[in-house]
Amino acid sequence: MEKNLEEIFQDKIDREIRIEPKDWMPEKYRQTLIRQISQHAHSEIVGMLPEGNWITRAPNLRRKSILLAKVQDEAGHGLYLYSAAETLGISRDEMYEQLHSGKAKYSSIFNYPTLSWADMGAIGWLVDGAAIMNQVPLCRSSFGPYARAMVRVCKEESFHQRQGFEILLTLSKGSEAQRRMAQDAIDRWWWPSVMMFGPKDDESPNSLLSMKWKIKRFSNDELRQKFVDICAEQVKILGLTLPDPDLKWNEERGHYDFGAINWDEFWQVVQGNGPCNKERLGARKKAWEDGAWVREAANAYAEKRKNRQSVNAA
């Protein structure tokens, strides 16, 4: 029986029929999705913090509004994703618990600090750019609620990258100090962005199964190459450079060659040794703990009101 169900399941996947929450699915598929979707949701929520730093310091009213709207969107994206994961039978509180205890991971990029206004540009251009490249194929992910959440996320995300590039473009046309700020931001955010696509294909153990199940559609290295190719061209418009002396167009491959990635740094940050891991997690925990009495009060009030209504009705 079990095997039969598994065959039907894989057949649906192969025929591009989306899996919905109440459909039979292998336990491993469910667990893989919960891990990936919740990790994705956590990344959105933790990702609010580095940019949130600059909302109160944005240099003019237009930028202030845009940045606030953008960071708020990320809260929305986290919410869509938590909701998608909840259809698989895990609660949001359980996911938070996993985040707060360090059991669940989030994208390492958010453990880097935002040191200048230009970082808002570099994050929009590079970090959101890399995220979009990862996310667009997820709109066709085999799990229906995840795919639908990603459609919504991608639709909203498109302004995020554009506003980032616009910030850098304005800085690149500005004073010497502004150009320095922009170049420094790119220098700091480039390699962590390249690492956002995850370990190399041959060191990414979960990838193969995820591809078979069409949870993901392209390998880490494929997406990474595409990202490098696009950015290497776009940076020319800024008149700035990417911090990689080995970056060079390879006519034969039809792609840019790029330098070696510092995987030691990558794993160090994943393991909690990035510059801001403790601050980021600390801020999330604090918000959650400080909010406990608020959530309890709303519950208590809703309960009281329900009771009063039933008394009145009786």
Partner: peptide
């Protein structure tokens, strides 16, 4: 806007940011 990212629950984080906007 100082609340953005630090609200007591995600839905209310979004609500207070809307009011700030």
């Amino acid at each position: 806007s100082e609340w953005c990212g630090h609200g007591p629950v995600l839905e209310q984080d979004i609500a207070i940011s809307n009011i700030a906007l």
